[in-house]
C-alpha cells in the first residue's frame, strides 16, 4: 500500500465511531424513555454515517478492490484500532452516558483540529461531522448534569460510571507511529495537544454536575494497537455475523 500510515490513521478515527455506534445501536428500543431512545439511535446513525465516509476513503487509499464493508466487517480483532473506551459495554444508562460524554468531549476537540487537515477529504468529513458531534456533546453533557445533580441514586450511579470509565480516558491522547507520521505531514491531529483542554472541559462539567473528578492516575491502553478488552470479541461476533456466515455476497 502506497500510504499505509494514512490508511491506518483513518482506521484509528473511524473505528472509534464504528464501535461506539455499534454499542449505541444495541440499545435501540430499550432506552429509559422514548426521547432518549430516539437521541441515542440518532447519535448511532450519525456515527455510522461518518464511518462510511472514512472507510470509503480508506478503501480508495488501500487501492485494491476492498469496499467500506470489507474494512468494517472483515478484519480480525487485532486489526481494529479503536480506543478501549468506546468498546465498554452498555452496563446501564449511566455508563452509556458516561462513555458518550468522555468520548464526545474528545471527539469535538479532535474534529475541530481535523478541519484544518491538509488532506481535503479528511477536512471535509470533519467539517460535516462537527455539527453532529457538537450536538452529541450537548446531549451527553446535559445528561451528566441531570444524573449527577438529580437524585441521590442517580448521583451514585453516575459517579460509579465515571470512576469505572476514567481509566480509559488517557489512551485518547496516545499516538501510534502511524499517527506521528501523519501529523508530520500536517494531515493528522496531534492529539497530545488536546489533553489539557479535554480534562479542563470534562472536569468543569463533572463539577457542575456535583460529581467528583476521579483522582486515579492508573490508565489502561492497548486499543490503538489492536489489543482490546475481553468485551471486543463478542461485539465483533455480532457485527461480523452475517459477513462471516455468508461470505462474498451482496446485501
Amino acid at each position: 500500500m502506497k500510504n499505509e500510515n494514512l490508511y491506518k490513521y483513518i482506521l484509528g478515527i473511524a473505528d472509534n465511531s464504528l464501535i461506539l455506534g455499534q454499542r449505541l445501536g444495541a440499545l435501540t428500543g430499550h432506552g429509559p424513555s422514548l426521547e432518549t431512545d430516539i437521541a441515542c439511535t440518532n447519535i448511532s446513525l450519525d456515527l455510522f454515517g461518518q464511518v462510511r465516509s472514512y472507510y470509503q476513503y480508506a478503501a480508495k487509499i488501500k487501492g485494491d478492490d476492498s469496499t467500506e464493508d470489507d474494512i468494517a466487517f472483515l478484519r480480525r480483532e487485532r486489526e481494529y484500532l479503536n480506543v478501549l473506551l468506546v468498546e465498554q459495554p452498555n452496563t446501564d444508562f449511566a455508563y452509556t452516558i458516561g462513555r458518550q460524554f468522555l468520548f464526545d468531549v474528545y471527539h469535538l476537540l479532535f474534529l475541530t483540529e481535523l478541519q484544518k487537515s491538509h488532506d481535503v477529504t479528511l477536512s471535509a468529513i470533519a467539517i460535516k461531522s462537527i455539527k453532529e458531534v457538537s450536538y452529541h456533546q450537548r446531549f451527553s453533557s446535559d445528561w451528566i448534569k441531570r444524573l449527577g445533580d438529580g437524585t441521590e441514586e442517580s448521583r451514585i450511579k453516575m459517579q460509579d460510571a465515571i470512576n469505572g470509565l476514567w481509566t480509559y480516558t488517557d489512551e485518547l491522547f496516545h499516538q501510534t507511529d502511524a499517527d506521528k507520521a501523519v501529523v508530520e505531514e500536517k494531515i493528522g491531529v496531534d492529539v497530545t495537544t488536546l489533553k489539557d483542554k479535554y480534562y479542563d472541559t470534562v472536569n468543569a462539567i463533572l463539577t457542575e454536575a456535583t460529581l467528583d473528578v476521579p483522582e486515579s492516575k492508573w490508565f489502561q491502553k492497548g486499543g490503538k494497537k489492536g489489543i482490546h478488552t475481553e468485551h471486543m470479541g463478542y461485539l465483533l461476533s455480532d457485527l461480523q455475523y452475517m459477513q462471516r456466515t455468508y461470505p462474498n455476497m451482496e446485501w
Binding site: Q22, G25, A26, T28, G29, H30, L34, D37, I38, T41, N42, S44, L45, F48, G49, V51, R52, Y55, E68, D69, A72, F73, D238, L239, Y241, M242, Q243, Y246, M249, W251
Partner: peptide, 27 residues
Amino acid sequence: GNWITRAPSLRRKVALLAKVQDEAGHG
C-alpha cells in the same frame, strides 16, 4: 431492533437504524 447489531452491510445498518428510529418517532 434485534438485527441492528447484525445488519450485513453499513448501508443496511444505517437504513435499519433510521427505520426503527422513525417508528419511535411515530410512537
